[in-house]
Nucleic acid binder design. Structure first.
Lengths: 191, 191
DNA sequence: CCTATGATTAGATAATTATCTAATTAGATT
DNA sequence: AATCTAATTAGATAATTATCTAATCATAGG
């Protein structure tokens, strides 16, 4: 991570109100704007202002339900940035996390048969993520799926839909709410 | 770590010049003021200004040799603070939002008369939440109420049922769907 | 199409702050 | 004591920003 980005991150987090918002989201899960405003004793425009800043550094994301937008913490991002601090002066950061298209192709060729089904799930996280990404690409962003639909979709690739479905949640590809599943924004994906 | 302290830390580190100083000290070991000023193309007073801020958060310490003061990075501190980031929002950060049972009793006694009705709605959010919680406790979880039923229930406590009903939604005590109201699970309540 | 609700944008204001030059302080050396 | 060197403080200025009110936008539901 380069200097400017790190500055931007700290500048954003170095504010009383914004830290309190982060705290609220951490303890309370997703909240909508007016709830945050109420709890902090500030007006909605002010909260809006802070939320856009928090979104800029990618630490909160949003989900819309009717007229209400729920904001939630991207905790993984938090961890990554914490790590970045200790490596402040170092230059060779981040590279090891990138995956090239070529690498993806190779993994897909190795683990997916000519019939399109998964021959076996790789054990290594990096490769698993590539497979998961491949599966989830068949789903539509912004659409809400009931659990059976998800199962059905996964079964096209692999019989163990329960494990894979769980990994979708675990690795932040999707969100579950009351039995309904929805893709997370791509920036949240770990790949 | 306290909220204020965390804010102070991030505010301090969230500055282009100061991060560059940290970077210099990390790669170059101890440096004296004028050397830093030279490398960054700034004047000594400016560097002095930033160094006092970095000393405030205890991330830089100094050693004097004759007239020259050498500044060095406290890397252990850096690690500690990085760790604190992942705990943003944990435990004691939100202390001021916790409410004890004793506190609740006190508020209820103050705002609710012997007839069980609300004498006046407190303005302070924390107290309002206590009153709202009290009112909503008379409703049953999992049951779906039409709007008139809700109004009726609230009117036992206060005549302004519209405002209170709206606050139930706003503060996530309940959900409305097509004119029907249902309690949210308790974990969602802000109290 | 109309209305209600929640979010965002625009614009204003007051507070904070990064930076400079000029002046001052603190040690060290002669 | 006089002088040199490095650091700090004072004071000024320009830029940034947290917050508010008022206005606008976007979506849902009739």
């Amino acid at each position: 991570m380069q200097l400017d980005k790190l500055v931007h991150f700290h500048k954003t987090v170095g504010n009383h109100t914004r830290l309190r918002i982060i705290g609220l989201l951490k303890e309370g899960g997703a909240l909508h704007g007016q709830a945050i405003a109420g709890k902090l004793g500030l007006t909605p425009p002010t909260i809006s202002h802070h939320l856009t800043k928090l979104k800029e550094i990618d630490i909160v994301y949003q989900r819309r339900d009717k007229n209400t937008i729920y904001y939630a913490l991207n905790e993984r991002k938090l961890d990554l940035l914490a790590e970045a601090i200790t490596r402040l002066g170092d230059d060779d950061m981040n590279e090891e996390l990138q995956v090239t298209d070529e690498e993806k192709h190779k993994v897909l060729n190795n683990f997916i048969g000519t019939d399109g089904r998964i021959k076996s799930m790789p054990a290594q996280l990096k490769k698993r993520l590539i497979i998961l990404e491949h599966i989830i690409k068949g789903l539509e962003a912004g659409k809400s799926y009931p659990e059976p639909k998800i199962n059905e979709h996964i079964k096209q690739f692999h019989d163990d839909f329960a494990t894979i479905r769980r990994e979708f949640i675990m690795h932040q590809f999707m969100t579950r709410d009351k039995g309904y599943y929805e893709l997370n924004p791509r920036e949240l994906w770990l790949i």
